[in-house]
Amino acid sequence: MKKIIKRKRVLLKLSGEAMMGSLGYGIDPKINESIAKQVKEISKSGVEVAIVIGGGNIFRGLAAASQGMDRVSADYMGMLATMMNGLALQFALEKEHVTTRVQTAIEMCQLAEPYIRRKAIRHLEKGRVVIFVCGTGNPYFTTDTAAALRAVEINADMILKATKVDGVYTKDPVKYKDAKKIFRLTHMDVIKQNLKIMDLTAVSLCMDNNLPIVVFNIKKEGNLKKAVDGQNIGTVITN
């Protein structure tokens, strides 16, 4: 299989569940540290790294809304959870001596910078890791959509979608031993087959802007560097 080109600027999409690790709730310090070390590895190699982080390990707005909570209020609470994850990841990165900036779509000046596109790009150019929190700042939009939006805005070369499995499979590989890994898909394949990789709004935005997505297992140390280097791990989604 042909290797994809090594990229200069990438956006890493981390789910809240990835931060949770084997815990049932919250942030696993070991996972947080592992992610920080992997980000440090690619950052020190000269790759500009931006991160969009979810909050599902603390609060899921959609789940709360399904139980009767007002959807808008629930989504805003979920955005606050992403801030907590962002600050935790910033701490872990700075322990590894990686300079970071947290930028938020909802203004919280005591905790983070407001999201300003030009400022984010300038941070990246200076070698700082930029963590985007609070999604798009709007209810009804997922952090997947925020990742696609921010990636397009900062002119990222690819989205690295971090998951617990090493790519996209025909079935759930945890439940079905005969599940087969799919190495390459198009954005339209994902949309037509309604694959639950990212929400359809995010995938459509990536398709419209010819933005590749690499789905890979973040739990295995070294995989982030391999994904950036274009090695054949995970599933690659392109036009």
Rank of each mutant, 00 (worst) to 15 (best):
Met198Asp: 04
Glu48Ser: 14
Met84Tyr: 05
Leu23Met: 15
Cys109Gln: 14
Thr163Ile: 02
Lys164Asp: 11
Arg150Gln: 09
Met84Leu: 13
Leu195Met: 15
Met188Val: 09
Lys44Gly: 01
Tyr115Leu: 05
Lys44Glu: 15
Leu205Ile: 11
Asp229Arg: 10
Tyr169Val: 01
Leu111His: 11
Asn138Val: 00
Lys95Met: 08
Lys40Met: 06
Ala162Ser: 04
Ile213Ala: 03
Glu221Asp: 09
Lys44Tyr: 02
Val152Ala: 03
Arg60Ser: 13
Ile154Trp: 10
Thr170Arg: 06
Val152Tyr: 10
Val52Lys: 11
Arg7Gln: 13
Val98Asp: 04
Leu89Val: 08
Lys196Cys: 01
Leu149His: 05
Val10Leu: 03
Arg118Gln: 07
Glu94His: 08
Phe91Ser: 15
Asn217Arg: 07
Gly26Arg: 07
Ile121Arg: 00
Ile218Asp: 10
Ala74Thr: 06
Tyr169Thr: 00
Gly234Tyr: 05
Ile27Ser: 09
Met79Leu: 11
Asp70Tyr: 13
Val152Ser: 02
Glu33Ser: 15
Lys37Met: 12
Met207Trp: 05
Ile27Val: 15
Thr238Ser: 10
Gly54Ile: 12
Ala36Arg: 04
Thr82Cys: 07
Lys171Gln: 11
Gly54Tyr: 11
Ala74Val: 05
Ala146Phe: 03
Ile154Ser: 09
Thr136Asn: 03
Pro212Cys: 06
Ala120Ser: 14
Lys177Leu: 04
Ala202Ile: 01
Thr238Arg: 04
Ile191Ser: 06
Leu211Phe: 02
Ile197Arg: 04
Gly127Pro: 03
Arg117Met: 04
Tyr76His: 15
Lys119Pro: 00
Asn57Asp: 12
Ile106Ser: 06
Tyr140Lys: 14
Ser22Gln: 11
Arg117Gln: 12
Ser22Met: 10
Gln38Arg: 01
Met108Gln: 14
Asn239Pro: 11
Val72Asp: 09
Leu205Gly: 00
Gly16His: 14
Gly26Trp: 10
Ile31His: 01
Pro212Leu: 07
Arg122Ile: 04
Gly137Val: 06
Thr170Leu: 04
Gly68Gln: 07
Ile237Val: 12
Thr235Cys: 09
Ala88Arg: 05
Leu185Phe: 13
Asp75Cys: 11
Thr235Gln: 08
Asp172Cys: 01
Val98Pro: 04
Ile218Cys: 10
Met198Trp: 09
Pro114Tyr: 03
Val129Arg: 06
Glu113Ala: 13
Val52Tyr: 08
Met198His: 10
